[in-house]
C-alpha cells in the first residue's frame, strides 16, 4: 500500500462531490482525505484527494476519476514537485499552570493560539501532514479535548503542468 495525492479540477456542478466520493466507496478505494474549494473561476472546483492502494489500484483510481463527466483534469501531485498543506485546530485542556508549556510547544511549531479559556486553549497549525502529526504527538502529555483537521490541499510547484482555466 502506498499513498498518492491527486489534484482534480472539476466543473462546479450540483452533486459533483458526491459523484467523486461515491466512486471511491462503490469501487472500494481507500481515501484518506478529500478537500474541495472553488478556484479563481467559480465555475470550477479544485479537489485534493489523498488515496491509498497498490500501484494498480492507484492507476485505476486516476483513470476512473478522469472518466467522470464533471472532471476536467486529474493529475498526481508528486511529493518532490508539489507543496501540500493541512490545517489543524487542536483544543487542549490546560490549567493556568500548564498553559505556558503548551504555548511553548506551539511557538516552536509556529502554531497560533486562537482561543484561550480558563481550562482550555485552541491552537491552529498549518503545515504538511508530518508536521501536524509531530505537533499532536508532542501534545500527548496533555489532554486533547477536540481535534479538527482539514485534510491536505496541494499544488504543483512552478509554471509547468498548470491547467489554465481559460483553455
Amino acid at each position: 500500500m502506498q499513498k498518492k495525492v491527486f489534484q482534480l479540477l472539476v466543473d462546479n456542478t450540483a452533486g459533483v462531490l458526491s459523484r467523486i466520493s461515491g466512486l471511491f466507496s462503490r469501487r472500494g478505494y481507500n481515501i484518506e482525505s478529500i478537500t474541495a474549494g472553488v478556484t479563481a473561476d467559480p465555475k470550477y472546483t479544485r479537489i485534493t484527494i489523498v488515496a491509498m492502494g497498490d500501484d494498480e489500484i492507484l492507476d485505476q483510481i486516476e483513470k476512473q476519476v478522469a472518466k467522470l463527466v464533471d472532471v476536467r483534469d486529474v493529475k498526481e501531485l508528486k511529493p518532490e514537485s508539489s507543496v501540500y498543506r493541512e490545517l489543524a485546530l487542536i483544543k487542549v485542556k490546560v490549567s493556568a499552570k500548564e498553559r505556558a508549556g503548551v504555548i511553548n510547544i506551539a511557538d516552536i511549531f509556529r502554531a497560533k493560539i486562537i482561543d484561550v479559556g480558563p481550562e482550555s486553549l485552541i491552537a491552529e497549525l498549518t503545515g504538511n501532514q508530518d508536521k501536524i502529526e509531530a505537533f499532536i504527538n508532542l501534545l500527548s502529555d496533555y489532554e486533547i479535548l477536540e481535534l479538527a483537521r482539514t485534510g491536505i490541499a496541494g499544488l504543483g510547484r512552478g509554471i509547468n503542468n498548470v491547467t489554465y482555466l481559460a483553455d
Binding site: 494498480e56 492507476d59 485505476q60 483513470k63 476512473q64 478522469a66 472518466k67
Partner: peptide, 11 residues
C-alpha cells in the same frame, strides 16, 4: 474506448 478498462483486469 474506455481507458479505465485497460489494465483493470489484465495488464
Amino acid at each position: 474506448v474506455d481507458s479505465a478498462e485497460i489494465g483493470k483486469n489484465a495488464i
